[in-house]
Nucleic acid binder design. Structure first.
Lengths: 253, 253
DNA sequence: GAGTGGTCTAGACCACGTG
DNA sequence: ACGTGGTCTAGACCACTCA
């Protein structure tokens, strides 16, 4: 024996709580059901509220719970699958699924964006704001950066801003030949403006999808889209030519 | 005046702290540098340690900081780009980049996995464990589930387990014709075993990449890979036929 | 053993949604 | 007005790393 190892080697309370609650959610609760409030739950499990909250936080991160201030904690539905890089094999705005243009302005992008686009550090680019909903809920907010050189014919445009201008910019960009796209996904936290659009608090976890649109051997546009990490599962199309049907979203409980 | 609105409408302290620290990291700290300890930092900013920790947690989530118990908090390097769905346009184990087979056992998978594979609820499948490192650091742990029906000729195998057996299974699966793959990405938290392999604490945020391998009109294998969310940026190949060279990973600071 | 981050407590007050 | 989750405090102790 020597090191007699107890089964749990001092598992943190919040982690054990998470496990217990997960099992309870699987077996005893229906989607949408309201849980007891945090103070009651904490008392029931004999822990401080902060500890209970740590467990709930985990479960919300995993998409099992949804918490809303002033309302309560409810059991979340399974994550919704959101297609990325498939719905528009072409330029943004083409077949026009998913994304809703909000507005467009001419602005100097962050340094990181400018570097990818190859524009000068003080050079303004078209910045199209779009939003995406799924099943009535907002799931993503996007900033689409397009250098002026990508849309040279966009000079005499009537709308100074707003959705009309956004659509005009998207219309112009479609005239370019799209050679390819590159996606990357990373974890981030929602900034204040994104958070508001996604109906979350600042700092909420988001999946940041960065897409480079390639045309003429260079990056003709750059999209930075932030998806709600708690409610979304991003799906990427098959890399082969075969498209597969696999029924509605399901998840074994 | 009526509702005289101050500029910050009561921004939470931890969020403001996060902003201040972000700027400090951008301008005054080098990668790898050690920050003052949490108690000192909290005192310096005039907040409780818990509040300071909330800000640090955010920054760690965003990949800006790295915290290690007993050691300290250091400035993290930029996230490393990790190719997904490109390094093996073929079956796992083919060109053999990235993934290291660890072992393989015959076990009954979780219900959710069984459902996708179309196997019975008590049917055992080959479960290959693999790990992936990048720049000397572990970045991902994978469980590759392969129904016995996908590798029918794998009966008289010598190795009962271990890396040798894992390689044998991967060798067999390559004989199938790969028709396509489907990836999905979602946020999760590391379970105890994954956490240990990734050198993180249980509950650490991870990006869960689920890949369906399609052959013969059905799912011939299912991979569930968990990537460290703090250190990884997942990259997906261009969906067009064009492959683009874009130099080594870079990010504007 | 000294110093670090990780966990936990028992309170308090605030912001928000709903009746 | 009330009940909810969100923020914040000032402590305590634990687990880990390293000299």
């Amino acid at each position: 024996m020597g090191t007699t190892q107890l089964e749990s080697v001092a598992e943190p309370k919040y982690w054990h709580l998470r496990t217990v609650l997960t099992e309870a959610l699987d077996s005893e609760f229906a989607v949408g059901e309201i849980l007891p409030n945090e103070r009651d739950l904490a008392a029931r499990f004999g822990v401080a509220r902060a500890t209970l909250r740590q467990a709930l936080e985990q479960l919300e991160l995993e998409g099992r719970l949804q918490r809303r201030r002033g309302v309560g904690t409810t059991v979340a539905p399974p994550r919704v699958g959101v297609a990325v890089g498939t719905e528009h094999h072409a330029w943004p705005g083409s077949a026009e699924d998913a994304w809703q243009p909000v507005d467009s302005v001419l602005a100097v992008p962050p340094a990181a964006v400018a570097e990818v686009l190859g524009t000068g550090p003080d050079e303004a680019v078209h910045t199209v704001r779009r939003s995406r909903t799924s099943q009535g809920q907002p799931v993503a907010a996007e900033l689409l950066h397009i250098p002026r050189s990508s849309v040279p014919d966009l000079s005499a445009i009537d709308a100074p801003s707003g959705a009309a201008r956004a659509r005009a910019v998207l219309r112009e960009v479609q005239r370019l030949e799209l050679e390819g796209r590159e996606n990357s996904v990373e974890l981030g936290s929602a900034r204040a403006d994104d958070a508001k659009e996604l109906d979350r608090l600042p700092g909420a976890p988001v999946l940041v999808v960065t897409t480079r649109f390639l045309s003429g051997g260079r990056v003709a546009a750059l999209s930075v889209a932030t998806y709600r990490a708690d409610t979304c599962r991003l799906t990427f199309g098959a890399s082969g030519g075969v498209e597969i049907h696999h029924g509605p979203q399901q998840r074994a409980s």
